[in-house]
Design a protein around this nucleic acid. Structure first.
Length: 818
DNA sequence: TTTGGTGTGGTCTGGA
DNA sequence: TCCAGACCACACC
């Protein structure tokens, strides 16, 4: 029989010592399909020159191996740009691959071994050219269902289809609530949300509960009911917000205590925690668990405005809906006193609902990435940038018959880390002050286009051809790249860039809210992620395709081109206000907005005629006004800090305290307001007035603690800090009171009154009562510095702001020194 | 087991 | 007590 399957998950097992791949997905009727396929894995040995045959024979006559060697072949693959003969060793049991490799790796005939640490199912997907989250066609025989599926096929043939139709995917969002009572964690609610389902399973019965609440008398019943619902609902995907690190971790622990088998996959096995470095991922086969928080944290956070990645913040940014406010402390209190249970239920339901809503945005992005890099969504959604790039390159290597380089061992990584960093981008010191009628131009994808246009690829480094040396040596370096061949990385980077351009063209012809537009948008976003990460990947010590010289050369050409256009701009009579890496900000005295736009566009056109390859300057836009300020120390203009006012009256703020999470909201908002007044209303006096009022409010104790909370991340184990800053001290205090603080935790703290250093007075926000804050600190260290950063550029000083117009402020001025 | 380098600024620390 | 330098976090591109 033949069946088309939308592939959602892949796993494997070993049956009779043979590896069997399990592909799981849905067909067009929405039936659950399991496909089994026997598959044999392999690895390569690179023989020393001329030792191919002897190595082959030696391997063939190996005895006492934990698995059978099925074949030993001499094949050819491309290695560092050259054809290289390799011995391919195919074995029966994929779990024993490392044993076989270990048995031969130190032989004198063996120069090196390759592709021995690629997961079995990734090997399969690459070899069969199959993309997860897309349609495949399976031909084979129907066999008995041993799993909870509608159909099991033992495949003879599997091939990738080119159909774009999106199948019906059933998503179930899960959230749990726990309270700690007398040192014991109690599971009090599990909430579930899907397109149609809204349910809260509660460990309590109460009068007037909502219709979506089901009450159970024990945690055991609660968990069992949850598993029962999942079985009935048959979701394809379960989404959580931090399920890996919290909900499923706790649920499994609790289930273990209660001796309940906890799992919801199609194979009936227990939920498994797959180790991934420090973290672990909660996995069941077939019902794909996606932890939205992990994906947001690793991939999306870079492009989000949210400074803290709570469900609340992220959901409000991505879907415009926030969380129902209920603090943990309050919840415990309500629960203990058995009051307002409706509110807890409401809160829990809302969390699951938000998680579900978020999935409608995140899952299509994850699917798109999955297709591009060829990994299952379970893995894709948990990958970092470098892992995504690497997955993509590995897939392309197999397609191109290129040998995949090994991952560096610890020792190699350490040695790479000891290398000196190379020189990066150019940042031009800005011209301080307020400018009017500014045009901004930048290079479209500068680094990717340089890599492509200058043929930057590890295997093409220093080919030695005179022509390449002459025409393609990176500026300020001794390195050149071969232009007689198409490099592995430029080739596939070019595909991404071209594809993205093509997608953007198509998108222009579609209405922005159409489903088709969104699909294309997700794909262009996936290509953007991978292509933008390629440059950094060159210099990443953990990379298989690590090559510092490639990163160095890319940056060197970057400097070359930005300098080149800056010179051309000057020659064209444009005044350069600022520039960073790939952009220049210009103006011309006497030109209005329309005129500067015209000039800039003309300039871009002229420049592009001279730029090689696909390197291209783009006109970004014009701004009515902009401000650049001085550095705190000295007179020079501060780089990476500016604010621009665009034509529709929006402020684009970069680098200022306003956009940093380690400043309190009050200081940030005050600074934003100052920028706004200065740029929009051109009324610095009013801005000063505003700051004065803020200070007054602060002194009078009228400011909410929330506005004074500072957020900072803990980036290493607390005992490893050499310098105990405020956030570290606050973290220590939080830990003393039983809160869990780990690497990556974001500490929310407030500086309180009292004696001692700032650190001594830093308190986790949850232990701070309303009037405990140190107004003096917030005035001198938060509000004033933030506001003055801007106002100093207009000639104001601290005294101008603190000039005692009110007696209160005058007193304060006398009692503090400056 | 955190893609790169460039840059700003706050707080702590220890020696003068 | 003062201050330079180290440490640290976070932003920009």
């Amino acid at each position: 029989m033949r069946e088309k399957v939308f592939l959602l998950d892949v796993d494997y097992d070993v049956e009779n010592e043979r590896g069997v791949i399990f592909l799981f997905g849905k067909n067009k009727e929405g039936k659950r399909i399991l496909v089994k396929k026997e598959f044999y894995t392999y690895f390569f040995a690179m023989p020393k020159e001329g030792k191919e045959e002897i190595l082959k024979q030696k391997i063939e006559s190996l005895k006492n191996l934990p698995t059978k060697i099925l074949s030993v072949d001499i094949i050819t693959k491309n290695w560092m740009g050259n054809e290289r003969r390799l011995v391919k060793i195919t074995i029966q049991n994929p779990r024993k691959l490392k044993d076989v490799r270990d048995a031969i790796k130190d032989w004198e005939e063996v120069e090196n071994t390759f592709e021995y640490n690629i997961s079995f199912y990734k090997r399969f997907l690459m070899d069969y050219r199959i993309k997860p989250c897309s349609w495949i066609e399976v031909e084979g025989n129907i066999v008995e269902n041993k799993f909870d599926v509608d159909l099991t096929i033992e495949a003879k043939e599997i091939k990738q289809l080119d159909e774009n139709e999106e199948p019906q995917i059933k998503v179930l969002a899960v959230d749990t609530e726990w309270v700690e009572i007398e040192d014991k964690e109690k599971l009090i609610m599990i909430s579930l949300a899907s397109e149609k389902l809204r349910k809260v399973l509660a460990l309590s019965e109460w009068q007037g509960k909502q219709e979506f609440v089901e009450s159970y008398a024990s945690e055991e019943r609660l968990i069992k009911r949850f598993l029962e619902i999942v079985k009935q609902e048959r979701p394809d995907i379960i989404v959580t917000y931090n399920g890996d690190g919290f909900d499923f971790l706790k649920l499994r622990e609790k289930a273990k205590q209660l001796k309940i088998k906890f799992g919801f996959g199609i194979d009936g096995k227990e939920l498994e925690f797959v180790r991934r470095g420090r973290a672990s991922a909660a996995r069941c086969f077939g019902v794909v668990h996606i932890d939205e928080y992990v994906f947001v944290d690793k991939i999306l956070s870079a492009s989000l405005k949210s400074e803290i990645l709570t469900l609340d913040e992220v959901a409000s940014e991505l879907i415009g809906e926030g969380k129902k406010e209920l603090e943990y402390k309050q919840m415990v209190e309500f629960w203990k006193e058995r009051k307002e249970l409706n509110r807890i239920a409401e809160y829990s339901m809302w969390d699951a609902h938000l998680t579900y809503l978020l999935s409608q945005i995140l899952l299509p992005q994850i699917f798109s990435l999955s297709r591009l890099v060829g990994e299952i969504p379970f893995d894709t959604s948990r990958y970092t940038y470098s892992q995504l790039v690497e997955a993509y390159l590995m897939k392309k290597a197999v397609e191109d018959n290129v040998l995949i380089p090994n991952s560096p061992k610890t020792e190699e990584k350490e040695s790479r880390m000891r290398e000196l960093p190379y020189k990066g981008a150019v940042v031009v010191e800005p011209k301080k002050g307020i400018h009017e009628n500014i045009a901004v131009m930048d290079f479209r994808s500068l680094y990717p286009t340089i890599i492509i246009s200058h043929s930057i690829s590890p295997e093409l480094l220093n080919c030695g051809h005179e022509e390449c040396k002459e025409k393609n040596t990176a500026p300020e370096t001794r390195n050149h790249f071969c232009i007689k061949k198409v490099g592995f990385i430029p080739k596939h980077l070019k595909f991404l860039i071209d594809r993205r351009k093509e997608l953007k063209e198509k998108m222009k012809k579609l209405p922005k809210n159409s489903p088709q537009y969104k699909i294309l948008d997700n794909e262009q976003y996936a290509t953007k992620i991978i292509s933008n990460a390629m440059y950094g990947y060159f210099g990443f010590v953990g990379a298989r395709w690590y090559k510092k010289e490639c990163g160095e050369a890319t940056a060197a050409w970057g400097r070359f081109y930005i300098r080149k256009i800056m010179q051309m701009a000057q020659e064209a009579g444009l005044e350069i206000i600022y520039g960073d890496t790939d952009s220049i900000f210009v103006k011309k005295e006497g030109l209005n907005l329309k005129e500067i736009e015209e000039e800039a566009k003309k300039f871009v056109e002229k420049v592009n005629k001279e730029l090689p390859g696909i390197i291209e300057l783009e006109f970004r836009g014009v701004y009515t006004r902009g401000i650049f300020v001085a550095r705190e120390k000295g007179e020079s203009g501060a780089k990476k800090r500016y604010a621009l006012l665009d034509l529709s009256g929006n402020l684009e703020i970069r680098g200022f305290e306003t956009v940093r999470r380690d400043w309190c909201k009050l200081a940030k908002e005050t600074q934003r307001k100052v920028l706004e007044i200065v740029l929009k209303e051109k009324d610095p006096e009013k801005a000063v007035q505003f700051v004065t009022e803020t200070i007054k409010r602060l002194k009078e104790g009228k400011v909410d603690i929330e506005e004074l909370t500072i957020y900072e991340q803990i980036t290493k184990p607390l005992n490893q800090y050499e310098q105990i800053g405020p956030h570290v001290k606050a973290a220590m205090k939080a830990r003393e009171k039983g809160k869990i603080v780990t690497e990556g935790s974001i500490i929310a703290f407030v500086i309180t009154k009292g004696s001692g250093s700032i650190s001594d007075r830093a308190m986790p926000v949850e232990f701070v009562t309303r009037n405990d804050y140190d107004a003096d600190y917030y005035i001198k260290h938060q509000i004033l510095p933030a506001a003055l950063r801007v106002l100093k550029a207009l000639g104001y000083t601290e005294e101008n702001i603190l000039k005692p117009k009110t007696p209160g402020l005058g007193m304060w001025l006398k009692n503090s020194k400056h």
